[in-house]
Design a protein around this nucleic acid. Structure first.
Lengths: 221, 221
DNA sequence: CTTCTCCTGTAAAGTAACTTACGTTTAAAT
DNA sequence: ATTTAAACGTAAGTTACTTTACAGGAGAAG
């Protein structure tokens, strides 16, 4: 789970980063507002932690810039103790939570997890294609005939990929990239295996093979 | 739909208010017990959200005052995580639901809608789902076949969470958050252990496992 | 105060579900 | 016809959940 930590106090930043990494985040750290803006806009983070006091600008401006572009990841702001004006402004600028310094790392982790979960919940988009509807929240597939099938994690991710762009041909390599990361890439055959399982659900005609190229989800299904 | 939010943490209050307004409530916010009592007695709300920790008094006293006068709108109380005593007292004082901090706003909204809907039918302090009825006062479970089982504290709290939103998938982490606080968080296995105890009561088909996602109480039970 | 009981949480073993690997068969393309 | 890619079936591997039994602790009863 990628995370952006914007904190100018080097010592604090390093300490936090290492603790956050212990609990499963992969953390990018930056000390300046300038860099924070660029990273937030260009990279795909699951959440951000933002100290409001930065050497080269106000953290709130960073947040506003993020929100103005399309950076939609949830942000937790760190404020000086009792400075609730900052908190209010932070919320108005689009923060999702706040924490007053000094704080316990456990508290930060708990709140981070909370906002990440919350942000995942608020994407209640269900993906529709033809007779099919993929429910992101419940991780299940509904079909026009009224049936509903719950999907396993891998089935779901693969199907979401295909349904996300009906008619587009995804190569096996592309699909592999979406499903796995570089370290833990299994046998390529795995895609074929899962395609087969999905076809059992959606019918063989719904997912078409382009031999040598890849697979596609038929939009006119 | 008018709503009264009693919360002394300014930031939290503002954040909640804005989110609640997004989903169609019109929200009055107050930070003090004194004002809360007056507003609750004089204004016509559809529901109330009440934080128990207030600067100038106990939230429970506010609730009791409301109930003593003719304020009949349903009330959801916010408690510190893992603080059962408050929850129990709150229910006894006439609260209709409770939620442990920190919570997801979606959860609050869902529960608010639930108690409003319920209150329009009539105020009742028992939670019904399918063939089951959870009695808040007696902390016991009644089943359609006429049997009645008393529950232990933990059993009750877990079941209450699940039955409060039938059909919704609660992750183990979510359930942990509602049952325990940061200091006294036991082995994660505890949820599984209690799910099993509950299933012995309600039958294995009533609580469904979604592997990798969580558990849900079947509404069509 | 001591004993007993029941609730709670832990640990470890057992099982089911999901994932991956692999060998074989089938089908497509040249 | 030959080569190559995909499909299929099965089995092994892995992870998540279930089940069970028990130890410690709090509160009730003696």
């Amino acid at each position: 789970m990628r995370l952006l930590l914007v904190e100018d106090d080097r010592l604090l930043a390093e300490g936090l980063a290492s603790q956050l990494e212990k609990v499963g985040f992969s953390v990018d750290v930056t000390r300046t507002a300038k860099e924070a803006i660029i990273l937030g806009e260009q990279e795909d983070y699951k959440a951000g932690v933002l100290d409001l006091g930065l050497p080269d600008g106000n953290g709130l401006d960073v947040l506003r810039r993020w929100r103005k572009s399309n950076a939609i990841f949830p942000v937790l702001i760190l404020t000086a103790r009792g400075d609730w004006q900052d908190k209010v402004n932070g919320l108005k600028a689009g923060a999702d939570d706040y924490l007053a310094k000094p704080f316990q790392t456990e508290e930060l982790i708990a709140r981070l997890n909370a906002i990440v979960r919350r942000s995942e919940g608020r994407v209640q988009s269900s993906l529709k294609a033809g007779r099919f509807e993929l429910d992101e929240n419940r991780q299940c597939l509904r079909i026009d005939d009224g049936t509903e099938h719950s999907l396993t994690g891998t089935e779901f991710r693969l199907l979401r990929c295909l349904m996300g762009r009906p008619g587009y041909i995804f190569s096996k390599e592309q699909l592999m990239e979406q499903l796995y990361n570089l370290n833990e890439a299994p046998n390529e055959n795995i895609i074929e295996a899962y395609i087969r399982r999905l076809r059992k659900l959606v019918g063989p005609e719904t997912i078409t093979t382009r031999r040598g190229q890849g697979y596609l989800f038929n939009d006119a299904a």
